[in-house]
């Protein structure tokens, strides 16, 4: 098997004195879609922040295409081809829809994604391109957040709870768009509390519990009971 595109080894993360991740190990291969599940507060967002450089770690705890990036700043990580769709969308309120997307393209990497292709993926954004991003509905804002990350033409994209707070019908629209994104060979980490959604799109799954990996395996191998046990920490 080829070398992993992203690999975490004994990743620890701290908020001051509080330790949020304990020795997380993970190997992700190019083209994989991996689900990260876990209860609220398990450390999923912390994991995303650590990988994307928003939290600094020891350099070799995170490797991307063989390079130790654990201690790089988020902007340096972004230029290397790793993008995060952050939890809660986090659009820039002072920027229009189009400007949000253009800022995503700031790193200037070559690839299939551009304003035009993002608008093809989410046609409703085209009509609203000049609007303030705050004037959009939650689902549309999520589309902007995803489009903004795609504009960087990343090799690995991280989704942090993209269904959070959205109506089921909107969630469906967004998840229906995922194959169009991942189909192009992009590697993806999908963080979800909604387990079924995550399992549907992924080939492998990791479950986090109180900062530790409590379950790892191929999606079609793990059972419901295993997940329940890993998720809630009860022995099934």
């Amino acid at each position: 098997m080829s070398d992993p595109i992203l690999s975490l080894s004994k990743l620890n993360a701290y908020y001051g004195d509080f330790q949020a991740l304990y020795g997380v190990d993970m190997d992700i291969h190019a083209g994989e879609v991996v689900a990260i599940i876990g209860a609220n507060g398990a450390g999923k967002s912390t994991l995303m922040r650590s990988i994307s450089g928003l939290m600094s770690n020891a350099s070799d705890q995170v490797r991307f295409k063989g390079e130790a990036i654990g201690s790089l700043r988020a902007d340096e990580v972004a230029y290397r081809g790793l993008a995060l769709v952050p939890e809660g969308r986090q659009l820039f309120p002072s920027l229009s829809v189009e400007e949000n997307l253009m800022l995503g393209g700031k790193v200037g990497r070559a690839g299939p994604w551009s304003l035009d292709t993002v608008f093809e993926l989410f046609p409703v954004l085209q009509e609203r391109r000049k609007q303030a991003s705050t004037s959009l509905s939650g689902g549309q804002q999520q589309m902007v957040a995803i489009g903004r990350a795609l504009m960087a033409n990343p090799e690995v994209i991280l989704f942090d709870e993209i269904s959070l707070g959205l109506a089921p019908v909107i969630i469906k629209t967004i998840y229906d768009a995922l194959p169009g994104i991942i189909g192009g060979g992009m590697t993806a980490l999908v963080v979800e509390q909604d387990i079924s959604k995550a399992l549907e799109v992924s080939s492998r799954v990791f479950c986090l519990q109180e900062g530790r990996v409590s379950l790892a395996g191929a999606t079609h191998d793990v059972t419901r009971d295993q997940i329940t046990a890993a998720y809630f920490g009860v022995v099934a």
Binding site: P86, F92, K106, A152
Partner: peptide, 23 residues
Amino acid sequence: TALGRGFRAVSDNQDIAQLMGLN
């Protein structure tokens, strides 16, 4: 301008701006 866009983005949210490649 792109520069101004960067200014506004960093002013809005420093972390997320950093994710977009703005130092």
